[in-house]
Nucleic acid binder design. Structure first.
Length: 886
DNA sequence: GATCTCACG
DNA sequence: ACGTACGTGAGATCC
C-alpha cells in the first residue's frame, strides 16, 4: 500500500519571529563571520529538522506573509497596527531563511494581499479534500481554528523546537469549543497582538462561556433578546458591528487564489550540497559536523577538483626545492610506534608522493629533508620530525606548521585531522582521514593505493595554501613571534625529549605490583565483611547502593546519575562509617595499581626499558603542554604510597642522576608582574615567603611569628583562589569555612592588594570588549560565553579570563626556558639530557659529575628566560631516582 | 561513548 | 536565585 499523503504546512513568518525572540538573549553569540545574526535561522533550522524527522511528510510548504497590506487592512486599516518595529537583526536574516529552505528541499510561497495563514488555510482545505493528513506549524494560536480530524496544529512553545499539538479533541478539552469557534471567540474577545478590537469588557473566559451557550457570534445575536439586562448585553448590542468585523478579521481564508497546487509541494528530502553551503555560510559548524559524514563526504567528493600529482618510485633532484610542503602519513596516533604508509611533498603547482621505503632509501630525499636552508611547510612538525628521525632522517628547515598555526589562532582548533582544520578556514578540497582510512578496527590503507596518494597530495596542497593564509592571520594578531620563536622551535625540543625517553625500572614496578595486590585483597575482604556481601568496589553505582541504601548512611552529594562517592563525600562519612576508611585506602591503592603500575608497565619499550610520552602542544586551552600515552605529568607525589612510583623512574646509565628544577610560585609571580600590584611585587622582590606574607596582610598580623601553620594554609588557599578567579563558594569549600567568611577573606585580600583587584577587573572588562584574553606572549584564548546572559556560563568565562593569562604566561615562560635550555646543552659538552616538563618544572638525567654545572646552567636559564618586574626563582634537587630528586 | 573518580600542576 | 574554584589524562564501569 502506498504511504499515506501527509502535508506539512509551516507558518514561516511567525515561526521565524518566535525563533528570533526565543534566542534573543544570545543574539550576539549567534553571528557568522560576516557579522550576520543567525539566531532566527538557527532556531528555525532546528524546528524544521525536528518536525521533518517526527512527521516524515510527503508534501511540505513554508508560507510567508507577503507584506504589511492585505485584504484585511483594506476593510480595517488598523489590523496588526501598533506593533513594534521589526528589529533589523531579524529582517537581515530573512533572505537566508529562503536559502535554508532550499537546502531542506522545502517549497516556500507568499501571496500578495494575503497572510501566511490564508495560504495555509487554503492548502489545508485542499489537502483535506484529498484525504491527506495535515500538520500545521505556527507560532500563532489563531491557526488552531484549522484543526480537523486529519489536521493537527502544532504551536511553538517557549523555544521553537518544542511544540504543543492542538487537535479537535484537545481544543475541546482545553476550551470546550470546536476549532472553528476559535474565530467566534476572537470576534468577541478580540486579539491584542493583531489589534483585533472585540467587544468591550469581553475577554477569552467570557467569550468561551457565551459560545458554549450560543455556538457562534451570529447565534449569539439571534438570541440576544433572551439575554437578561446587563452592561455586557448593552456592550454586545452596541458593538455588534465590531464583533462581526473582528470575526471576519480572525477568519482564515480557505480559498485564496494560490498559484500553486498540492502537486508542487512534493517533498523529496534535503539537498545536501545546498545545506552544506548554507551551514558554511552561517558558520553552523555543529550542524556541518552532524550531517551524515558519508553524505557530506559524497557531496564534498563531488565538488573536489581533480588533484594533479605524480606517484614516483625514483626520486630526482628536480623534485625537491625550496618552499615545499612535506607530509608523512601514519594511521595511528602514536608516532613513536606507528608505521609510515606514505610520503608526499611539493608545492601548490607540483606534488609528488611515494612509498615510504622509496624516500627512506633516497639520499636525495635525505639531503633535502636535512637541508636547513630548504624551507618546508608541515602539518604537525613534531610528528613529522619524529617519524623521519626513526628512519635516520633529521628534518630541518621547517618554517610553518599548519597544526600549530591553527592552534595559536584559536586554541579550539586542535584537531589532528588536517581536513578539520582546513574546513575551519573554508578549505574543503581535502578529505578527512576517516573517510579515506575508516575508523576503529577497520582503519586501513585503502585497497586502491591511488586513493591514498591522491589523499596525501591533497594534504600537501592544503598545507601549501593554508600555511600562508594562517601566517598572515598570526601577523595580524601579533602572534608571529609566538609561533616562530616559541612554538615552532619548541616542537623540536619536545620531539628530542620524547625520543630520549625516560628509563623505567620495571622490576621495581613488578615488586610494587605484588605488594599492592596483596594489600588490595586484604582491603577487599575487610570491605566485604563490613558490607556483609561482595560487590564491585570499583563501581560507584554498586558502592552507592551499599553505602546509602543497604547501610543507610546519609547522602551528602548527588551526581547526575546517582549518589556521589567521591573522596570529599567519603571523608565526611568516615567518623560514622568504619567501612569508609577501607574504601578510601582501597581506592588509593587501586588507582596506583591500575593507572601507574599496570599502566606504565604496558608502555615500557621492552628493548630499551624506556617510556616515550607524547607532549601535546595543541591541547590545553591555556597554552600548557599535556602529556599522553603515558601521561608523565601526573605521576603521584602528594601521598607517600603513590610517590614511591617515582622510584621506578631512573637515569639511563649507572652513576647518573635524575635532576629536577622547578619554578617557585611562578603563577603568583606572573600575577605580580601583570597586575603590577606594589605589595605583591614587593613581597617577591624582598624574597618573602609569599603565603606567609599574604597571611600577615590579610589577617593583619604584625610579626612573622604570628603566622601559624593554619593561618598560612588559609592564606595559601586564598592565593590559589586568586589565581583561579576566586569565588566565595570555591574558597569556602576548599577551606571548609562558611561562604561569608570566605567572602570576608576575599574582600580583605582585595583591600590589601588593590593592584590585583584592578587587574582582575581590567582583564574581565577587556575580555568582554574583545572576546578574548592574551598571555604575555600574545597567546590568545577566545571566551565565547563572556557576555552570556547565563550566569553560570558567564561566571565561568570570567574566571577563565582571570586564570588564562596567568597560567598561560607561566606556560610561555617555561617554553622559552626549554628552548634556551636545549640550545645551551647542545652548545656545552654536557651529556645531560632534558626529559620531561611538568608545567613548572623540568626533569633531566645527567652523569653525577655534571650535576653541579647543570644546576648552575638550568637555574640561570630558567630564572632569566624572561625578565619580569619580579625575580623568577628556581629550586633544584637531584637523586638516584625521580623519587629522590625531592 | 558517557560518567565517575582521581592522579598531577 | 543561581551553583562554581583553573588546567589536564587515564582507568573502570555500564549502557
Amino acid at each position: 500500500m502506498a504511504k499515506k499523503n501527509k502535508l506539512l504546512l509551516i507558518d514561516g513568518s511567525s515561526v521565524a519571529f518566535r525563533a528570533f525572540f526565543a534566542l534573543h538573549n544570545q543574539l550576539e553569540s549567534f553571528k557568522n563571520r560576516n557579522g550576520l545574526h543567525t539566531n532566527a535561522l538557527y532556531g528555525f533550522h532546528n524546528m524544521i529538522e525536528k518536525i521533518l524527522k517526527e512527521e516524515n511528510p510527503t508534501h511540505a510548504l513554508v508560507a510567508f506573509d507577503a507584506g504589511k497590506t492585505t485584504f484585511r487592512t483594506e476593510f480595517y486599516p488598523e489590523y496588526k497596527a501598533g506593533r513594534a518595529k521589526t528589529p533589523r537583526e531579524f529582517t537581515e536574516q530573512m533572505p537566508y531563511l529562503r536559502e535554508l529552505l532550499k537546502g531542506f528541499g522545502i517549497y516556500y510561497y507568499e501571496l500578495e494581499n494575503y497572510e501566511a495563514d490564508d495560504i495555509i488555510g487554503t492548502l489545508s482545505a485542499q489537502a483535506d479534500e484529498k484525504a491527506f493528513d495535515v500538520v500545521v506549524v505556527s507560532g500563532d494560536r489563531d491557526l488552531t481554528q484549522l484543526a480537523k480530524d486529519n489536521v493537527k496544529v502544532d504551536i511553538t512553545v517557549k523555544g521553537v523546537s518544542e511544540t504543543k499539538t492542538y487537535t479537535v479533541e484537545s481544543i475541546k478539552e482545553e476550551y470546550g469549543i470546536a476549532p472553528l469557534q476559535i474565530i467566534d471567540m476572537k470576534g468577541l474577545a478580540g486579539d491584542k497582538s493583531d489589534n483585533i478590537p472585540g467587544v468591550t469588557k469581553i475577554g477569552e473566559k467570557t467569550a468561551l462561556t457565551l459560545l458554549q451557550e450560543y455556538g457562534t457570534v451570529e447565534g449569539l445575536y439571534e438570541h440576544i433578546d433572551d439575554m437578561k439586562k446587563s452592561k455586557r448585553k448593552e456592550n454586545l448590542i452596541n458593538e455588534k458591528e465590531t464583533a462581526l468585523l473582528s470575526k471576519k478579521l480572525a477568519t482564515i481564508i480557505k480559498d485564496a487564489p494560490l498559484a500553486i497546487t498540492l502537486n508542487d509541494l512534493v517533498y523529496n528530502g534535503p539537498d545536501t550540497k545546498k545545506l552544506i553551503d548554507f551551514y558554511k555560510e552561517m558558520d553552523f559548524k555543529s550542524h556541518l559536523n552532524r550531517l551524515d559524514t558519508s553524505e557530506l563526504e559524497e557531496t564534498l567528493e563531488a565538488n573536489r577538483s581533480d588533484i594533479q600529482f605524480q606517484k614516483v618510485t625514483i626520486l630526482t633532484d628536480e623534485m625537491f626545492k625550496d618552499n615545499q610542503s612535506i607530509y608523512v602519513e601514519m594511521l595511528t596516533d602514536n608516532y613513536h610506534t606507528a608505521q609510515v604508509v606514505g610520503i608526499s611533498w611539493g608545492n601548490e603547482e607540483k606534488i609528488y608522493a611515494c612509498e615510504p621505503e622509496v624516500a627512506f632509501h633516497s639520499d636525495i630525499f635525505k639531503k633535502w629533508a636535512e637541508d636547513g636552508h630548504s624551507k618546508k611547510k608541515t602539518f604537525d612538525s613534531k610528528r613529522t620530525y619524529v617519524a623521519l628521525k626513526h628512519h635516520g632522517i633529521e628534518l630541518k628547515g621547517v618554517v610553518a606548521d599548519l597544526s600549530l598555526e591553527a592552534y595559536l589562532l584559536d586554541v579550539k582548533d586542535n584537531s589532528s585531522d588536517l581536513a578539520a582544520i582546513a574546513e575551519e578556514y573554508d578549505y574543503f578540497d581535502v578529505a578527512t582521514d576517516e573517510s579515506v582510512y575508516g575508523k576503529g578496527a577497520k582503519r586501513k590503507v585503502p585497497e586502491d593505493k591511488e586513493q591514498l596518494y591522491a589523499h596525501l597530495a591533497r594534504k600537501i596542497k592544503a598545507i601549501a595554501i593554508l600555511c600562508d593564509q594562517l601566517m598572515e592571520k598570526l601577523e595580524e594578531n601579533q602572534q608571529t613571534e609566538l609561533f616562530t620563536d616559541i612554538e615552532l622551535p619548541l616542537a623540536n625540543v619536545l620531539a628530542d625529549m620524547e625520543m630520549a625517553g625516560i628509563t623505567v625500572n620495571s622490576k621495581r614496578l613488578e615488586e610494587m605490583k605484588g605488594e599492592f595486590a596483596e594489600k588490595l585483597q586484604e582491603l577487599e575482604q575487610k570491605i566485604y565483611a563490613e558490607a556483609g556481601e561482595t560487590f564491585n568496589i570499583n563501581s560507584p553505582k554498586q558502592l552507592g547502593v551499599i553505602l546509602f541504601e543497604k547501610m543507610g548512611y546519609p547522602v551528602i552529594k548527588k551526581t547526575k546519575t546517582g549518589y556521589s562517592t567521591a573522596v570529599d563525600v567519603l571523608e565526611q562519612l568516615q567518623d560514622q562509617a568504619p567501612i569508609v576508611a577501607y574504601i578510601l585506602q582501597y581506592r588509593q591503592i587501586a588507582k596506583i595499581q591500575s593507572t601507574y603500575i599496570e599502566g606504565l608497565l604496558k608502555v615500557i619499550d621492552k628493548k630499551t626499558g624506556k617510556v616515550h610520552t607524547r607532549f601535546s602542544q595543541t591541547t590545553a586551552r591555556t597554552g600548557r603542554l599535556s602529556s599522553v600515552d603515558p601521561n608523565l605529568q601526573n605521576i603521584p607525589i602528594r601521598l607517600e604510597e603513590g610517590r614511591k612510583i617515582r622510584q621506578a623512574f631512573v637515569p639511563r646509565e649507572e652513576n647518573w642522576r635524575i635532576f629536577a628544577s622547578d619554578y617557585s610560585q611562578i603563577e603568583l609571580r606572573v600575577l605580580a608582574h601583570v597586575s603590577d600590584d606594589q605589595h605583591l611585587k614587593e613581597a617577591f622582590i624582598e624574597g618573602q615567603d609569599i603565603h606567609a606574607s599574604t597571611a600577615m596582610r590579610v589577617f593583619g598580623l604584625e610579626k612573622a611569628e604570628d603566622v601559624t601553620p593554619n593561618i598560612r594554609r588559609q592564606a595559601k588557599a586564598v592565593n590559589f583562589g586568586i589565581v583561579y578567579g576566586i569565588s566565595d563558594y570555591g574558597l569556602s569549600q576548599n577551606l571548609g569555612i562558611s561562604r561569608k567568611e570566605a567572602q570576608q577573606f576575599i574582600d580583605t585580600y582585595f583591600e590589601k592588594y588593590p593592584g590585583v583587584k584592578q587587574y582582575m577587573e581590567d582583564v574581565v572588562r577587556e575580555a568582554k570588549d574583545k572576546g578574548y584574553v592574551e598571555t604575555l606572549f600574545h597567546r590568545r584564548r577566545y571566551l565565547s560565553d563572556i557576555n552570556s546572559r547565563n550566569y553560570n556560563l558567564r561566571s565561568f568565562a570570567e574566571r577563565t579570563a582571570i586564570n588564562t593569562p596567568i597560567q598561560g604566561s607561566a606556560a610561555d615562560i617555561i617554553k622559552v626556558a626549554m628552548i634556551q635550555m636545549e640550545k645551551a646543552l647542545k652548545a656545552s659538552d654536557l651529556r645531560a639530557t632534558m626529559l620531561l616538563q611538568v608545567h613548572d618544572e623540568l626533569i633531566f638525567e645527567a652523569p653525577e659529575e655534571e650535576i653541579e654545572t647543570l644546576e648552575k646552567l638550568v637555574t640561570d636559564v630558567m630564572e632569566h628566560a624572561v625578565a619580569l618586574s619580579v625575580p623568577l626563582l628556581v629550586e633544584s634537587d637531584n637523586g638516584k631516582s625521580w623519587y629522590d630528586a625531592k
